[in-house]
Structure formats: C-alpha cells, structure tokens
C-alpha cells in the first residue's frame, strides 16, 4: 500500500529538540511528515486534517496522554498505525498503549536506522516488538489466565507463546523463523495475533464497562 507515495507520518512529542530530530530524520529518509504536535490535545486536533498513516507517539506528553491519544486515533481511523516511542522503558503504560491499539514500540535510544525501519514496517501493518514489550505481553496473558475465566478471555496458542518467548529473549524474527523452521511472514503473523487478541479483549472490556456504567446511551 505504500507504493511510490512516501509514508505520511505525524510526530507527537513534547520535547522540541527530540521532535525536530525525529522529524528531520524521517524527512531526510524521504518520508512525508504531515504534522507535528507537542501534546495530546494538539495531536487530536491536527490528526483529522493531517490523516497520517503512522503516528510516532511519545507516551509522556501533556494531557491527554499517549495511551488516550492512541485509543482515540485508532477509534477515528482504524487504519492508522501507532508507533510508540518511549523514553522511560517498558512500563505498564506501554502495555496500556498496545492494548489501546498501538502496533509498534521502540525505546528512544534506538538508532535512526531502527526508527526508520520501525516506521516503515508499522506502516506496512507489521508489529514492531522489543524484547521488553514481549515480556510485558507474556505477563499480561499470564495474568488473564489467573483472572476469573470467561469465554472472551484471550489465550495464546502454544506456538504463539513459543514465538513470543523467543522475541522476549532478544531474537529477531529472522532468527526465530530459522529456529522454528517457519517463514518470516508466519512468525510476524503469530506476533501480530498476540497483540490483536489483547486489543480486541480490551475493546470488549471497555464496552462492557461502558454498558455497566450506563455510558452507552450516547
């Protein structure tokens, strides 16, 4: 879908130096930075007109925060991809952002090449994982198992668990594909599914909560 058209990217970060650096790097690599924003409300105000394919988003921004921005942007346009760029590492808010619909996560110390690669892959619909995020996702599925059982509770298949564990151990998709004798695409699909199930579950939970609280009569 990217074709010859440059990928349209929006950069949201409250740190001006950082925002400029990311914007410059993306533009220098031929990507089209259609908008930048310094906080959550700016991001949501500019998003509808800018229509970016990829939102490069810092989690620690003035309200609404990165998790809320992720949820709102994905709600408005489910085809938008959100790549979380976080300074503070693998914390619970990263997991929340992923559950809200982000499909990529990178720490800010990643190199320029890693960032460009991540933006391109996320734009193509791939998921970009770090080992730390894989650990968080594994932990989350584990906690869901302990929670009161219910038909809608997502579970990982054995293969998905296996793949996710290897990601958490720092292996690249290519290495995992070699080890498990799978295609790169299949590994990617497994990883993607682990997130998709969590996101779906999160939406169902939110809807249920809204109904319980009588918030659905809008």
């Amino acid at each position: 879908m990217s074709g010859d058209e440059p990928i349209r990217v929006m950069v949201v970060d409250d740190h001006p130096m950082w925002r400029d650096a990311v914007e410059r790097d993306l533009a220098a690599a031929g990507l089209n930075v259609v908008a930048v924003a310094a906080n959550g409300s700016e991001a949501l105000a500019r998003f509808p007109a800018a229509r970016p394919q990829v939102l490069v988003l810092d989690l620690q921004i003035p309200a609404p925060n990165g998790v809320e921005v992720t949820a709102e942007v994905v709600r408005q346009d489910p085809s938008t991809r959100v790549l979380i760029l976080s300074a503070s590492g693998e914390q619970s808010d990263v997991l929340d952002a992923v559950k809200a619909g982000a499909t990529g996560y990178l720490v800010k110390s990643a190199s320029r090449e890693e960032l460009l690669d991540a933006v391109r892959r996320v734009a193509l619909g791939d998921t970009v994982f770090t080992p730390g995020l894989a650990g968080l996702v594994l932990g989350e599925y584990r906690r869901l198992l302990d929670a009161p059982t219910d038909d809608g509770t997502p579970k990982l298949t054995d293969r998905e668990t296996e793949v996710l564990r290897l990601v958490a151990k720092g292996m690249s998709y290519k290495q995992i594909a070699e080890r498990l004798v799978l295609s790169h695409r299949t590994v990617q699909n497994h990883v993607q599914n682990t997130l998709r199930k969590l996101q779906l579950h999160n939406r169902v939970e939110l809807t249920r909560y809204a109904i319980e609280q009588g918030l659905d009569e809008e």
Partner: peptide, 30 residues
C-alpha cells in the same frame, strides 16, 4: 527522569554524527 532520559537518548543518537569524540560521548550517554 523522563526529561533526562530524553536528552540522554538524543545525545546517544546525535553524538556519533559529530565525529571525533562524539562516538564516545554517545556511548557514555547510552
């Protein structure tokens, strides 16, 4: 902490482009 992490990450990324001792600076920031 968040601000410091941001700057350290930025230094790590930009310093090697300065050449000379930049690479060392970037490594320390990392």
């Amino acid at each position: 902490h968040d601000g410091v992490l941001q700057v350290l990450a930025l230094t790590q990324r930009k310093a090697p482009e300065l050449g000379g001792e930049g690479a060392e600076l970037g490594r320390l920031a990392g």
